[in-house]
């Protein structure tokens, strides 16, 4: 894989992950009702993925339990194909994520990035920071009272 391809793959992985984690209602609101024409290659389908862990956190894989996932594939009129695998059971979420995945591979990528992905990323960062900051406030500070060896 060339460097350009590697970067393109990393970018696509990043936006697909962001879309998968997004609140369905928020994604729908950012994308708006005016969706581009497309043909469904795989209509939104609800299923499960077996989540695996590792024995001892680092050893062999084991099956922990499943999570619900919805997937969708579609093609824009221009022929560009978009895919989505998103957490949960929301068919519209999967369809909209696949649309954004497709649009990000077209000339509209800058606009979609600014209008949909950037706000989603900023809101996710804010949500994560709020939890991390609350966790940080519960970090224990130890004080030495008496040293036994004196």
């Amino acid at each position: 894989m060339s460097t350009a391809e590697t970067v393109a793959t990393a970018d696509r992985r990043a936006w697909m992950g962001l879309l998968a984690r997004a609140e369905p209602a928020r994604l729908a609101a950012l994308l708006g009702a005016d969706l581009p024409e497309h043909v469904l290659l795989r209509a939104p389908e609800i299923g499960a993925v077996m989540v695996r862990g590792r024995v001892g956190g680092a050893g062999d894989a084991f099956n922990l339990g499943e999570m619900t996932v919805t997937r969708c594939s579609l093609r824009l009129a221009s022929g560009v194909v978009g895919h989505a695998y998103v957490q949960g059971r929301d068919r519209d979420h999967a369809r909209q994520a696949a649309l954004v995945d497709a649009l990000m591979q077209t000339g509209r990528s800058t606009e979609i990035e600014a209008r949909v992905l950037a706000p989603l990323a900023a809101e996710e960062t804010a949500r994560r920071s709020a939890r991390a900051a609350r966790a940080a406030a519960t970090k224990v500070e130890f004080f030495t009272m008496v040293r036994g060896e004196d």
């Binding site: 989540v51 695996r52 680092a58 922990l64």
Partner: peptide
Amino acid sequence: LPRFGASVPVDTA
């Protein structure tokens, strides 16, 4: 539910 596959083992670290 149809099974779409198994995940890459999660990275708890």
